[in-house]
Design a binder for these strands. Structure first.
Lengths: 219, 219
DNA sequence: CCATCTTTTGAGAGTTACTCTCATTTCATA
DNA sequence: TATGAAATGAGAGTAACTCTCAAAAGATGG
């Protein structure tokens, strides 16, 4: 029914960093679900790149991934989520917890991103770039991506900052700091999307921005 | 055709601060457009409050505002924009420019918000609260609101920071600072939405967060 | 005051993301 | 192999948005 039977060669196999893939050693059912989820995401990204986001229908994605449209929405609540969903936050938490406890939160985060960003680009380069390109160009995706950073990254950051500093649960300063960090991360992300920095400088820019933040944003 | 012919009494007349209303002294055509825009927004907010966002259709809003659905979308590109659109950013710019030039950007912003936030709540209290309530509770609106703060507030902040500090046009530090400020503003906004602070403490919280930022977010 | 030109509006048809329900298939377990 | 649970597909339905075209309303020159 559809012509391209070949699985995209240009897009790498989707997977977050730390390449011990949970695909093995999982009950058969879960394994199939994970495979379906990745198939949907890969085919969707490929189609989006080829014919644009708006001109790609969910029906087409479903056909390419050989599932029904109903099933698509069981895996992703909206079309935008196919692009926006990732699995990096838990990794960030893990690496953060490994940092020596005498470091301040911002210093610890500088080390975290110094380690993670290069690894991220090394592992999933094509995928990360494709997702960011789409985020930059499609307004509705852009909106959901920011909201995802809020409900994901910002929340997780707040939690680990509270954990590390021993502050009380609803502490507003920890929340503000988490937001400020999320902010400078977004600044770096958009700087790249707007072509203001090269992809290889991202790690450096993030580190610079965090140092700038720790210095009280002097201008 | 529809019963409620009475114009909402509960919601105040929508208008940004600085109450010299551009409604007067405007060509007739523009005046009508502005009136239509406000009518749509007022009726929409009222209906959302009464029967919920998802259970209110654009068709209902159009009927209440006595326009056609086509016209609705000529005024607001999406249903979410009825809630998300406001006119505060230019006011912020204006007040920022009035601050004494020896102040650092953050110090100047502390004064700006110290002046503006109370005024904002005094003028449009009902409207502001209704909009924030909806933003807090409807995910798609939440996403668009954050994006609006990015494309609006963050951009404007960056511009006036560059203007004040005399930095070059694409300066990344100014951008990072604007993002950090946007971040702590969001932190305050969400703290209120989650019921963590009272509405009267918003100005104080924002001021505190900016001071915290200027101090390098020490934790 | 009238005629024309431009902008705004309404009507209606069409697309597509998303929801719900129900029957069927597929995997897990005893 | 039989029984129960979870995942899937099919299909119908809703509502947000888009596009096109003709009618209406405000602006402008005589």
């Amino acid at each position: 029914m559809h012509e391209n039977r070949t699985m995209s060669a240009s897009l790498p196999d989707q997977q977050a960093a730390r390449s011990d893939d949970p695909l093995d050693r999982l009950p058969l059912r879960e394994r199939k679900k994970l495979k379906t989820r990745r198939a949907i995401q890969n085919h969707a990204l490929r189609l989006f790149e080829r014919q644009g986001y708006d001109d790609t229908t969910v029906e087409q994605i479903a056909a390419a991934a050989e599932i029904s449209p109903s099933t698509f929405f069981r895996y992703f609540p909206t079309k935008e989520d196919v692009i926006v969903t990732d699995e990096y936050d838990p990794v960030m938490v893990e690496v953060f917890r490994q940092q020596p406890p005498e470091l301040s939160p911002i210093e610890a985060l500088r080390r975290v991103f110094g380690e993670l960003i290069p690894e991220m680009f090394a592992t999933d380069q094509g995928l990360v770039m494709a997702r960011l390109r789409l985020t930059a160009s499609v307004p509705s995706v852009r909106a959901r991506m920011i909201e995802a950073m809020r409900s994901g990254t910002q929340g997780v950051l707040k939690d680990i900052i509270i954990e590390r500093t021993g502050r009380p649960a609803g502490d507003l300063d920890a929340d503000a700091l988490a937001w400020a960090v999320t902010g400078v991360l977004m600044s770096a992300m958009y700087a790249w999307m707007d072509g203001l920095v090269d992809i290889d400088d991202m790690a450096g820019l993030i580190d610079h921005n965090l140092a700038f933040l720790a210095a009280g944003c002097p201008l």
